[in-house]
């Protein structure tokens, strides 16, 4: 969610109960301007908040030239001092998934020890065989933010364009979806590198505009029904919540270019979702 419009849009996404306190809002307003100038970002986004048992993490994202590839994530415990999160690799995500379990603690230097899990799990000897390293909570945080962005970041169709050079930029002439379009899930897209787009048939591709349809559509997700689309605030604001990652809320005011998403939750994926629908 763009830091400049944060304070008007925060009320639109707090339908799931979590918000920011006045002190945090005030602190963010100050610190994110400093952040933007220090790191020379084009835009700063407030990505969200991950609840820990002892402390909470606040996550910000700085965007450079390319809106998808050129992103940097930072975290803070007090909304004031920001620290860069480590670069995420596939191996790191896999390791974190295997080692780090349970809730976040709120201590970035906490080490998740694979030996401890092996001791508790007992039966999971096969998993324990793999070479696993200790994972610090900072790495886990980086991997979680990366995964959430990859799996459930949402933008409305047409809000971003890909230039002929391949750069993804905001679309200045995006005027919002109309209310009928906004009620349909196929007008919202994953804001990450497309995966299923290439597998589409030529017939389906014919309708797509290469400048704006370069992302995967939400309605093509494999687990059908993993999104909850509702109109809130007197049916004026379209709110999409991910059921796969409880806490991810996307809002779009139909007819305007206002849109954004924020994650406020405990940073755990709902692995039980197939049972719950």
């Amino acid at each position: 969610m763009d830091a400049s419009s944060l304070f008007s849009s925060l009320d639109l996404v707090c339908g799931n109960g979590l918000s920011l306190s006045s002190e945090q809002r005030a602190a963010l307003q100050t610190s994110m301007i400093i952040l933007k100038s220090h790191y020379r970002f084009n835009r700063v986004l407030l990505w969200g908040k991950i609840l820990g048992i002892k402390h909470d993490y606040f996550i910000a994202q700085g965007v450079g030239e390319d809106e998808i590839k050129d992103k940097k994530c930072l975290y803070s415990m007090n909304c004031m001092d920001w620290h860069l999160l480590p670069q995420v690799t596939e191996a790191m995500v896999a390791n974190v998934a295997a080692v780090a379990k349970g809730r976040f603690l709120g201590d970035p230097s906490h080490q998740y020890d694979p030996a401890e899990i092996r001791r508790q799990g007992g039966g999971d000897a096969a998993v324990g065989e793999n070479v696993m390293m200790k994972v610090s909570e900072e790495n886990r945080l980086a991997a979680t933010v990366f995964t959430i962005d990859k799996e459930v970041a949402v933008v409305p169709r047409g809000a971003y364009i890909r230039s002929p050079h391949g750069n993804v930029q905001t679309n200045p002439s995006f005027q919002g979806l109309n209310p009928t379009e906004a009620a349909k899930l196929n007008n919202y897209m994953h804001f990450s590198e497309a995966k299923t787009l290439k597998k589409k048939s030529i017939l389906e591709m014919a309708d797509l505009n290469p400048a704006i349809d370069f992302l995967d559509v939400l309605s093509d997700d494999v687990l059908k029904g993993s999104w909850s689309l509702q109109f809130e605030h007197g049916s004026k604001v379209c709110v999409i919540r991910s059921l796969l990652w409880f806490g991810l809320t996307f809002y779009h005011v139909p007819g305007t270019s206002q849109h954004g998403y924020i994650y406020m939750g405990d940073g755990l994926k709902t692995l039980d979702l197939p049972f719950m629908l």
Partner: peptide, 8 residues
């Protein structure tokens, strides 16, 4: 609002 919870 003080504790960062609420519906707006």
């Amino acid at each position: 609002e003080q504790i960062g919870v609420g519906l707006g």
